[in-house]
Simulated scan of single mutants.
Amino acid sequence: MKPYIERASAAGPEWVKSSYSGNNGNCVEVAALADGGRALRDSKDPSGPVLRFTAGKFAAFVAGTRGGEFD
Protein backbone atom coordinates (compact mmCIF):
# COMPACT_ATOMS: atom_id res chain seq x y z
CA MET A 1 0.00 0.00 0.00
CA LYS A 2 1.31 3.45 -0.91
CA PRO A 3 1.89 5.90 1.96
CA TYR A 4 0.25 8.69 -0.05
CA ILE A 5 -2.36 9.26 -2.75
CA GLU A 6 -1.30 10.48 -6.18
CA ARG A 7 -4.67 10.72 -7.91
CA ALA A 8 -8.08 9.10 -8.11
CA SER A 9 -8.38 5.81 -9.94
CA ALA A 10 -10.83 5.45 -12.82
CA ALA A 11 -11.93 2.15 -11.24
CA GLY A 12 -13.06 3.88 -8.05
CA PRO A 13 -11.44 5.27 -4.93
CA GLU A 14 -8.16 3.72 -3.81
CA TRP A 15 -8.37 3.75 -0.03
CA VAL A 16 -5.13 4.24 1.93
CA LYS A 17 -4.63 3.67 5.64
CA SER A 18 -2.19 5.83 7.57
CA SER A 19 1.24 4.36 8.17
CA TYR A 20 0.73 5.46 11.80
CA SER A 21 -2.21 3.06 12.18
CA GLY A 22 -1.66 0.08 14.39
CA ASN A 23 -3.35 -3.31 14.27
CA ASN A 24 -6.09 -2.36 16.73
CA GLY A 25 -8.64 -1.68 13.97
CA ASN A 26 -9.21 1.98 14.93
CA CYS A 27 -8.10 3.45 11.62
CA VAL A 28 -9.19 6.12 9.20
CA GLU A 29 -8.70 5.60 5.47
CA VAL A 30 -8.44 8.35 2.87
CA ALA A 31 -9.05 8.27 -0.89
CA ALA A 32 -8.47 10.78 -3.66
CA LEU A 33 -11.60 11.81 -5.58
CA ALA A 34 -11.75 12.54 -9.30
CA ASP A 35 -12.49 16.24 -8.64
CA GLY A 36 -9.32 16.64 -6.54
CA GLY A 37 -11.10 16.32 -3.20
CA ARG A 38 -10.63 13.64 -0.58
CA ALA A 39 -12.89 11.10 1.12
CA LEU A 40 -12.48 9.64 4.61
CA ARG A 41 -13.98 6.48 6.08
CA ASP A 42 -13.64 4.18 9.09
CA SER A 43 -11.58 1.12 8.15
CA LYS A 44 -13.76 -1.07 10.41
CA ASP A 45 -16.83 -0.20 8.31
CA PRO A 46 -15.74 0.08 4.66
CA SER A 47 -19.34 0.03 3.40
CA GLY A 48 -20.43 2.62 5.96
CA PRO A 49 -20.61 6.41 5.72
CA VAL A 50 -17.96 8.41 3.89
CA LEU A 51 -16.99 12.02 4.60
CA ARG A 52 -16.18 13.99 1.44
CA PHE A 53 -14.06 17.15 1.37
CA THR A 54 -13.17 19.60 -1.38
CA ALA A 55 -9.45 19.91 -2.09
CA GLY A 56 -9.34 23.29 -0.31
CA LYS A 57 -11.19 22.11 2.79
CA PHE A 58 -8.98 19.03 3.09
CA ALA A 59 -5.82 21.15 2.69
CA ALA A 60 -7.07 23.43 5.47
CA PHE A 61 -7.72 20.40 7.70
CA VAL A 62 -4.23 19.01 7.09
CA ALA A 63 -2.65 22.42 7.74
CA GLY A 64 -4.62 22.75 10.97
CA THR A 65 -3.54 19.29 12.08
CA ARG A 66 0.11 20.02 11.36
CA GLY A 67 -0.19 23.37 13.15
CA GLY A 68 -1.57 21.77 16.33
CA GLU A 69 -5.04 23.27 15.96
CA PHE A 70 -6.69 20.04 17.12
CA ASP A 71 -4.32 19.04 19.95
Rank of each mutant, 00 (worst) to 15 (best):
V50E: 07
E29D: 00
A31N: 03
F70A: 07
T65I: 15
V16R: 15
A34N: 11
A11K: 14
T65K: 07
A32F: 07
P49D: 13
P13I: 13
M1G: 14
S19Q: 12
Y20Q: 05
T54E: 08
E29W: 01
A63I: 01
V16Q: 11
L40I: 09
P3K: 09
P49L: 10
G64D: 00
G67D: 14
A8H: 00
L40C: 04
R7C: 10
S47T: 14
F61T: 02
E69S: 15
G37A: 11
A39T: 07
V62S: 06
G67A: 15
P49Q: 11
Y20T: 02
V50A: 01
S9M: 06
F53R: 03
M1C: 08
A11T: 10
F58Q: 01
M1A: 09
F58H: 05
P13K: 11
M1L: 10
A55T: 08
G67K: 11
R66Y: 11
P46G: 01
D42W: 02
A10C: 07
F53G: 10
R66L: 08
A63V: 04
V16L: 08
E14V: 14
S47H: 15
G37L: 08
A55Y: 02
T65S: 11
F58L: 04
A63G: 10
G25P: 02
P3C: 06
I5S: 14
V50R: 11
K2T: 12
D45S: 12
G68R: 12
K17W: 03
G36A: 07
W15F: 06
R7M: 11
E29C: 03
A39E: 08
S19Y: 13
F70P: 00
L40A: 14
D42Y: 01
N24R: 05
S47F: 14
Y4Q: 06
E69L: 15
A10W: 06
S47L: 10
Y4S: 09
E6W: 13
V30C: 09
I5M: 13
N23D: 13
A63C: 01
G48P: 09
R52G: 01
F70D: 04
T54Y: 03
D35M: 07
A10M: 10
Y4H: 13
P13T: 13
E6L: 15
N23W: 05
G25T: 03
G48A: 07
C27S: 04
V28T: 10
A11E: 12
A10V: 15
G25Q: 02
A55G: 09
S21Y: 02
V28N: 04
G22S: 14
G64T: 00
S19D: 07
F53K: 03
R41K: 03
A8R: 00
T65M: 11
S21M: 05
C27H: 06
V30N: 07
G56T: 08
V30Y: 12
A59G: 02
V50T: 12
A8Y: 05
A31C: 06
L51W: 00
